[in-house]
Design a protein around this nucleic acid. Structure first.
Lengths: 108, 108
DNA sequence: ATTTATTATCGTAATATTGCAATATATAAA
DNA sequence: TTTATATATTGCAATATTACGATAATAAAT
């Protein structure tokens, strides 16, 4: 046990769960907020501001990349991250749809 | 290691992360949808429909309860679950705020 | 009182996540 | 070429999550 059973759920359910799972850690919420507030934010800046070790930040960045929320732009030795706004809006729509449909079902 | 560091994040960040973490599993997405579609849905019905063992469903229900999304109404030996719509809308607002603020920051 | 049905809890195994030190990699500067 | 800086990867320890069988608890029905 301990294994995943996502095959018994449909595409939409797995998609909504994947997005919320990635958002389901305060470090990742914080990283996304910080990048959005400081366009062209590099890894080091996140390490300084958030207070987690560099490998830990790097790991969380990878999780966020999994749902396509990050663009990156290498400039010299720096790697600047920014939010992919189109994908952000996709995610927002997917999660909001879940809430709206649930709410409508409850009240009819 | 392996321990949580949520004390380095603010209340809002932890709140958003807690809500999304609970939603971050397809079984819980499915359970919430099923309860919303069938008002007064008991545990057994979820077990039948979702295809996970009864203790597993019970465990997921407990996770969902942690963010106040479930009301329960004991009728005889049955325990009927329903969605707390006020709390659902709270959660929706909290998550949507996160998306909207992030999007605004990106584009100014 | 015994049986039946429903849900919760306990115990446990498998796996996943979180966090970091150490190290590797890559690029720029000296 | 050596040094410095930025990021990624590896390896590992601690903890959390997921899933389920077994069992307990509760309430109705016989």
């Amino acid at each position: 046990m301990g294994f995943s059973k996502k095959h018994i759920f449909d595409e939409q359910q797995n998609q909504a769960a994947l997005i919320t799972k990635v958002l389901g850690h305060p470090a990742r919420i914080s990283i996304i907020q910080h990048i959005s507030q400081n366009k062209c934010c590099n890894c080091n800046e996140l390490v300084q501001n958030i207070g987690l070790a560099q490998p830990t930040i790097s790991q969380h960045l990878n999780e966020i990349k999994k749902i396509g929320l990050l663009d990156q732009d290498a400039k010299g030795k720096n790697l600047f991250y920014s939010i992919n706004v189109d994908r952000l809006n996709d995610c927002r729509r997917i999660i909001n749809d879940f809430f709206v449909k649930t709410q409508i079902n409850c009240c009819k």
